[in-house]
Design a protein around this nucleic acid. Structure first.
Lengths: 217, 217
DNA sequence: CTCCAAATATACAACCGTTTCAACTTTGCC
DNA sequence: GGCAAAGTTGAAACGGTTGTATATTTGGAG
């Protein structure tokens, strides 16, 4: 039969239903949160709204209530590492990062009008702010390693680690400010000055890092 | 009569009892946490150990379970602002901050042996790490203002705000590293380079800031 | 000493997010 | 059709936290 395509790939009916349920949960959650505020909506109500049980809700979002809101966002996170490693030739690392960060906060105005609402919700809900921040911070190690690779510094280098940490923290910092774009600008200015003065000179050719001495984690 | 000294000051018996209860709560909490781990001890048990009800526990520590551990720490926080404003003449702001931060992490070795245990507990308990970090971050505004005052920059200046944020974040960053002292060193190096390059030149005479144009909060 | 009013402490029940678990249902496949 | 794996479910439980209504304690006044 035609159903025998893949037991767990992206094409099966099962997977489609799962995706639909997941989406239904995220959608109703966001809708209710925007209507009445994050704290005023319980997970029981969300589950009911998506017509599943609470167990199922937590089966889909084991990270908890906050994760319901960042379902889409979580996909774009890896892009940050690529922004460094795949940056156009001649562009410095600080410029690549700054561009990526500002691109992220600018999309509030240009893109989806719902996206602005989403960002406002996060900005005004402490639990969501915290969650967003720690989400980004999960990439600290990856970013630090990318920086080390690209500059030829040793893995575990503390300057790279600190620069990675502060760069990611910049998003949370910007979110706490009336003008996020300006905040990113200034924060990056501060960090970039420190970075270039400390690391000094020449990143090697950006397209490829050094011959990738250790591809492991 | 002699008892009519102060109804709510520091000398009354009432206040002494309150302080004792508070201390008993913090002490038993820390002891139990160290014995069996933060997550393995419930607030009901802590209250029982200090011989009070759970309601009373939350009456003394409305910020929640985590606050039980940081009772003493909370008192020393204001010292950070003083480290900037009261720094010895001729010392730059970055140096004052770096000294204060390293002083904080070094006391793990020199001072109280219990302090090392305390720091290990915080380091190994995510909830406590988070709490500690947000505790420090509460001083972001105060530190930023102090920096602005001392450098003659306008209040709300984003460079000062970012530098304050990152400096405070440095403590959490250091805590997540195998060698915290080295981490503070490198993070401060990075930040200081950025700070001095960006703010450039002359802090005014350190002893007094500019003639304190607005003493308000 | 006695009594009052305010401040504190208490027990108890509720609420919320989250986890667990044993049953039940669906799904993909033979 | 039937089997095993995967997914769903409801209900119960847990731990932190908050309310509430009721004591208990305290300082001070008569």
């Amino acid at each position: 039969m035609a159903e025998t395509i893949d037991r767990d790939g992206t094409g099966g009916r099962r997977e489609r239903k799962k995706a639909a349920t997941r989406q239904a949960l995220a959608d109703t959650a966001l809708r209710l949160f925007l209507e009445r505020g994050y704290e005023q909506v319980g997970v029981r109500e969300i589950a009911e709204g998506a017509d599943v049980s609470v167990s199922t809700l937590f089966n889909y979002f084991p990270q908890g209530k906050e994760a319901l809101v960042f379902d889409e966002d979580a996909r774009n996170e890896a892009a940050l590492i690529r922004a460094v490693t795949d940056r156009p030739p001649g562009q410095t690392i600080p410029h690549a990062l700054r561009a990526h960060l500002t691109g992220f906060v600018d999309s509030a105005h240009t893109r989806d009008p719902r996206f602005a609402d989403f960002q406002r919700l996060v900005k005004e809900t402490p639990a969501l702010r915290e969650y967003s921040r720690t989400m980004w911070l999960r990439h600290e190690h990856a970013l630090a390693r990318a920086l080390a690779d690209q500059t030829g510094r040793p893995h575990g280098d503390l300057i790279c680690a600190a620069y990675a940490r502060f760069t990611l923290e910049t998003l949370a910092f910007a979110g706490s400010r009336p003008d996020p774009a300006a905040a990113i600008d200034q924060a990056c200015l501060l960090l970039d000055q420190g970075w270039t003065t400390t690391v000094a000179h020449h990143d090697p050719e950006p397209g490829r890092p050094a011959p990738a001495p250790s591809p492991t984690g």
